[in-house]
Amino acid sequence: MDNEKCDGCNSENTEMNDILNKYKQDKSNLIQILNEVQEYYGYVPEKAMLEISEYLSITMAEIYGVVTFYSRFTLKPKGKHHIAVCLGTACFVKGSEKILDRAKERLGIDIGETTKDGKFSLEATRCVGACGLAPVFTVNNEVYGKATVKMLDEVIDKCMEENE
């Protein structure tokens, strides 16, 4: 399935309703709802924004403004293996740039992009809070600490094997 085109329309109605019904129809709940949508779908689909717009009586423009303001919200689905390299200061000082460069090189994508086959996406994050293990990177929220280029290579190799 083409991840870029699919907006999860079939499952959406009931799931979206479940999320929305948890919250009062109060504009201040927008970010809470978006956080749940992002968590559930892995991104914020346009359809979800339309439903939120109706539910909270906010314009699409305003919702789009909020979605694009906060770095946690994305408009495109992430890859099956989402690699995030920490660029917090503690990790930066310990050389996380080298790990990020290697990830870019291996996957052939830049920060914020997803590979064409939808298998990998890459992100540079700011501090996952595991500074004692710096430098760190995460793959789908699993943390790899005291990371080296070699460790990254091995993890990517493993993910690739899984893909096949």
């Binding site: 709940n29 970010i31 809470q32 956080n35 403004g65 303001f69 906060y70 770095s71 700011r126």
Partner: peptide, 25 residues
């Protein structure tokens, strides 16, 4: 609890208030 969504500027107190109210920080 109100969750932030990854914006450093929301640590600034008035931006934080904007964000709690559901807007751009």
């Amino acid at each position: 609890i109100r969750l932030g969504a990854g914006a450093f500027v929301c640590g600034e107190e008035t931006a934080l208030l904007e964000s709690i109210e559901g807007r751009r920080g």
